[in-house]
Design a protein around this nucleic acid. Structure first.
Lengths: 116, 116
DNA sequence: GCAGAATATCGATGACTGTCAATCCAACGG
DNA sequence: CCGTTGGATTGACAGTCATCGATATTCTGC
């Protein structure tokens, strides 16, 4: 029956406690890790915070470059990462690009963390 | 009074919306980013999940190496990162090392995310 | 159309990170 | 004591990332 390794498991519980519920599978872990990696940078956290602290949760790049003390290409790069990860929306109106928070994006990832 | 740049701010609101509340400062962003970086890895997320899914939220290394498909030194490295970040506690009893979840550690970081 | 301004993209570079093989350090059993 | 076993540490290597200067793109006002 090609069962070459069926019975060796019963003796492995020497040092370990039993499992209560199923742990996270590999692909879910990969997805969540990608979402978290997009957040795990001080510049990007401050970008999100600055956008969130605007009255209508919207801000343009010119408003974001100076308070971070980073160059404009770097800020643009971080904004792209946040948009690709689904945390920000980009809306180009005329010459300026306005970034706004995606509703519930942060809440959903923090919810995933709470019940790991 | 060395105020060489005091009044040029009033004309900057050409493209930008006003600020409602103060954004996150640089040091808080740095701290939160470090906490998130410790989580932003699929192997580490699965480690936390496996520990959490044990009945008493405790597991030893021998129980963690195999389901991840990673070498023992790599698992040990990830566990150290999680301990240093405050998510896990290490308790060496005899030959084995038992890892347990730090209470409220995940909840506190997810709370910080929710009200950015 | 053209000059200028606001952003995005590209290329390069230095720093950091995940992984493993090899080794080391305890603790236990005989 | 000594071999064995669980686990941590070290060193090396490949891949990723944050950052910037330079350049490209796109829109506006004239």
């Amino acid at each position: 029956m090609t069962s070459t390794e069926s019975l060796t498991i019963s003796e492995l519980s020497a040092c370990c406690t039993p499992i209560a519920r199923a742990p996270m599978d590999a692909t879910s872990a990969e997805r969540l890790a990608r979402s978290l990696k997009a957040l795990a940078d001080p510049a990007r956290l401050r970008l999100l915070s600055i956008v969130a602290s605007h009255e209508d949760a919207e801000a343009c790049v010119c408003d974001l470059t100076e308070p971070l003390g980073l160059s404009q290409p770097t800020v643009s790069h971080h904004l792209k990462v946040l948009v690709d990860a689904g945390y920000l929306n980009r809306d180009k109106r005329g010459t300026w690009a306005y970034y706004s928070l995606t509703p519930n994006a942060l809440d959903s990832v923090s919810g995933l963390l709470s019940n790991l």
